[in-house]
Design a protein around this nucleic acid. Structure first.
Lengths: 234, 234
DNA sequence: TTGCTTATTGGTCGCACACTCAATAGCATC
DNA sequence: GATGCTATTGAGTGTGCGACCAATAAGCAA
């Protein structure tokens, strides 16, 4: 299935090539899993030879960690932008929950699950996971704190509140590979409900505000590959 | 480094041998991970040849699923015995939380994480995981319902309550491979606190009742972790 | 003791993996 | 157009995996 004969080798700058490799690996990580990031698989995707991947990443584990970091960072940026758009904090969080509990987040749930398990064997990846965890927690804490300062939320400890919300999200994400659709809506809403309770909001507040949005220039992200369908694992 | 020379082959009944294989696989699953269940690894552990494992489990995936099921069932049985001991429902649950949030449960947390991820690629395992999930949920629901009937707990929907508790436990277990020790006690207590809120109990009710126990022949869990005391950084 | 069933072995095959390194060729520079 | 740097290739190493199967021997029954 490679693109026929290898006609001409294309020579790129190390920076470009490296970025290209990481991007390809991140895509594979999201769609097929971190253990599918192999020299052969990534090389095939980029139509180069496996040796080239080795050249840029002498140890595959480093590429795996980099791929996870890249995918997670990108997701967080689209999920909870560093500079909160002018809308209310409530809308900001509502959009966060709409996304994290919807099917659009399934790949990311799977990736977190994947990374957390693989961390058991891969120290470099584990460090990345820890870094991303504190990044996500910090970002959510910031969003909560901003809402508190605006008078929209009410909580004693924004940090603990963020942790409580994330624990619920992680708990729900645990089932990404086993039973997505069979959850009753009361379960799917668990994360938002937790946030509402923690932040002193009325029930359903964080669920309804998703649609009346002034369109913050966030169309379908171009990085999301729906297809591929090929899944194998020996 | 096998136990010296293969002196004499020992012939066992198929049932015994099969049980022995599953038990060994379950041990490996708990201590090293499900992907370490290989023909060679299990054969080495039992001091037999790999071919023998293949003979009893022509497809390794079946052994992996069986090993997970075996380990999970055993754990559940010790965690929430089917026939609740004569003690109060509150004690029953308190012991459950003491165990699930303590380090004694780390291996099991890792195993669940492992199995849930691996379910992505292994259909047979996925079915087992789904089965165990409903088993655990059912058992916890039963414990909750028993407490409600005794007048010790108060909840509208025991099933939903059980799910909410399990989601928190799963969320906490997500971090089994990436720093469980650095959680502040408020986080470790999250599961019990959720149960207390759900069941209409006062704060700390499910944490204190662990020590004044009439000794129900429950070895192995004297580690009443009051808190790891480590600070956290956001 | 002898014979027979079958649990167990030993060996082999094909595959996928990470990693290494000398040889090659793209391309910017002169 | 020639030159030199180096990004890229091709070929090969060794390991571990699941799966397969004919040969072997353990231990029960006759």
């Amino acid at each position: 299935m490679t693109s026929s004969v290898q006609r001409k080798r294309i020579r790129k700058s190390p920076d470009d090539r490296r970025a290209e490799i990481v991007e390809a690996a991140a895509t594979v990580a999201l769609t097929e899993g971190l253990e599918c990031i192999t020299l052969r698989r990534i090389a095939e995707q980029l139509d180069v030879r496996p040796g080239l991947i080795s050249h840029y990443f002498p140890a595959v584990e480093d590429l795996v960690a980099e791929a996870f970091g890249s995918a997670a960072t990108a997701e967080l940026e689209s999920l909870l932008p560093a500079d909160p758009p002018d809308g209310s904090s409530l809308n900001h969080l509502a959009r966060f929950f709409a996304r994290t509990t919807g099917p659009a987040y399934d790949d990311m749930s799977r990736l977190w699950l994947n990374a957390r398990h693989l961390s058991r064997y891969r120290p470099v990846l584990r460090e990345r996971v820890l870094g991303q965890e504190s990044l996500w927690r910090g970002r959510l804490t910031g969003a909560v704190r901003a809402g508190v300062e605006r008078g929209e939320f009410r909580t004693e400890d924004p940090d603990l509140t963020a942790i409580r919300i994330l624990v619920v999200i992680d708990g729900l994400a645990s089932h990404a590979n086993t039973g997505l659709g069979n959850h009753p809506s009361a379960v799917i809403r668990l994360a938002a409900a937790t946030a509402e309770r923690e932040l002193g909001l009325a029930d359903g507040t964080l669920a309804l505000a998703t649609e009346p949005e002034p369109a913050t220039a966030e169309p379908g992200s171009p990085t999301t590959e729906p297809g591929s369908g090929t899944e194998e694992q020996s």
